[in-house]
């Protein structure tokens, strides 16, 4: 990101030099900085509302309930993980926390899942098929309500900030399905790596 940011500024300078638009550059930067804080303030209210609601949901046990629903599905997706293995519980909790948009709660659960998957790994430096599949699901985003995006839309004066919820749900379902399919297909052709000496 450091490179992208630096390039933006340098290219802006180059572009302004070619077109003689230095004053445009300065004005753009100042307006951008001002907009950023206005935006952060409007975002703060909406994010506080949403995260407050999520905390209520979490304390009512909704994350656990969702995880219980997901566990059998995950068990089928990960045939190499024993049915009573703790990794399945951690993965189910991680995915449900992500679905609800509880990013802060999701990460430690996901890391625990990775550690538990690592105990099933014959080759501790090389990713297993199960790890890759878990991360494909995780990185394809399974969030049910895109809170930050809605907050941004509301803050910049959209007429219907929430009308992207349905489309987002459809797109994220498709991307998760493609992620699962790609992980499963590539697992068949990708070399597993040679077992390490100490085993």
């Amino acid at each position: 990101m450091a490179l992208v940011w630096m390039l933006l500024l340098v290219l802006a300078f180059a572009s302004a030099a070619i077109d003689g638009r230095m004053d445009g550059l300065t004005q753009g930067a100042l307006e951008g900085a001002e907009n950023a804080i206005r935006l952060a303030i409007s975002l703060a209210g909406i994010l506080a509302l949403w995260m407050g609601l999520l905390r209520v949901a979490d304390e009512a046990g909704l994350t656990r309930k969702l995880a219980a629903l997901l566990r059998p599905v995950l068990s089928r997706l990960f045939p190499e993980v024993p049915k009573d293995h703790a990794a399945l519980d951690s993965m189910a909790l991680n995915v449900s926390a992500n679905m609800l948009g509880l990013g802060n709660a999701a990460t430690p659960l996901g890391l625990r899942a990775m550690e538990q998957l690592q105990t099933l790994n014959p080759n501790p430096r090389v990713a297993t098929d199960a790890m890759v599949l878990f991360l494909a699901i995780n990185t394809s985003s399974v969030q049910l309500v895109p809170a930050t995006v809605i907050a941004l839309r509301a803050a910049s004066g959209s007429e219907a900030p929430t009308d992207v919820i349905g489309p987002t749900l459809l797109a994220t379902t498709l991307s998760t399905l493609v992620g699962i399919a790609a992980a499963k297909l590539l697992a068949r052709i990708w070399p597993k790596g040679t077992p390490t000496e100490e085993r």
């Binding site: 940011w5 802006a12 572009s15 302004a16 077109d19 445009g24 550059l25 951008g32």
Partner: peptide
């Protein structure tokens, strides 16, 4: 602030 200022500069400069 970092992103919007940089992109604002880039946009303002015609980039």
């Amino acid at each position: 602030v970092a992103i919007l200022a940089a992109v604002g500069a880039f946009r303002g400069a015609g980039g």
